[in-house]
Design a binder for these strands. Structure first.
Lengths: 107, 107
DNA sequence: CGGTTAATTAACCGATTCGCGAAATAAAGG
DNA sequence: CCTTTATTTCGCGAATCGGTTAATTAACCG
């Protein structure tokens, strides 16, 4: 499968993360619609989209001149699988106790 | 909670990702032990650890001169919660069909 | 064909990142 | 104290990143 750290790197940029969240909320969104309201220019968005595509996070579909982007479900599943692989760790009471102790020490 | 895109950014570096995976596998590991076998120097590892700590992914505990690092369970839980928030998307048969179609089109 | 719209590519630039070696800090232990 | 061990902080170059404007490609439409 796709390398997990590349997926994380793609989501690590706040602009790209918000793009993915918008795609998740709206389904398919054209590149131009992602530009509107993003605060940055079309070329910048286009490059972000290519990073997301290279990481396997999004796919695009052509409709006339527009390119409609959407999230690739299997990429999210890859992340979910990784977290679930360690579920017993972050879900255990011992783990939660460690978390509380860390909060009390604070830094 | 901690900003999700900062967590992803921290995990986006392959060195940091492998550090987290080793901490998950072994529990607590001293900084020096993380250096051995990483291929990079101690200062580099130290900086990676501070990035991971700033992102809320790891915590450290002092024991004599050593600093023992471990994963903060709540940070993994934060990621798991985000994926679960969109579970019905990547788990649905419609979504899986989209994924298959994308693979057939292939770019 | 000529014009318009949509998106990407090219070229450039400032800021950040990631590695290093050297120096500083912290805690033990003779 | 002084040395050893463990880790972090400090500069410093090389490389990457994220943004810009300008140019290019692609598809539709009169």
């Amino acid at each position: 499968m796709l390398p997990l750290s590349e997926i994380f790197a793609a989501l690590g940029d706040p602009v790209r993360f918000s793009i993915v969240e918008r795609l998740l909320a709206e389904g398919e969104v054209a590149a131009g619609d992602l530009v509107s309201g993003s605060g940055i220019t079309a070329p910048a968005i286009s490059r972000h989209l290519s990073v997301l595509r290279d990481a396997g996070l999004v796919q695009s579909r052509a409709e006339a001149q527009r390119r409609l982007y959407s999230v690739r479900p299997d990429s999210l599943q890859t992340i979910a699988r990784w977290t679930m692989d360690h579920r017993e760790f972050w879900e255990s009471s011992v783990a939660r106790l460690d978390a509380l102790m860390a909060l009390e020490e604070k830094k």
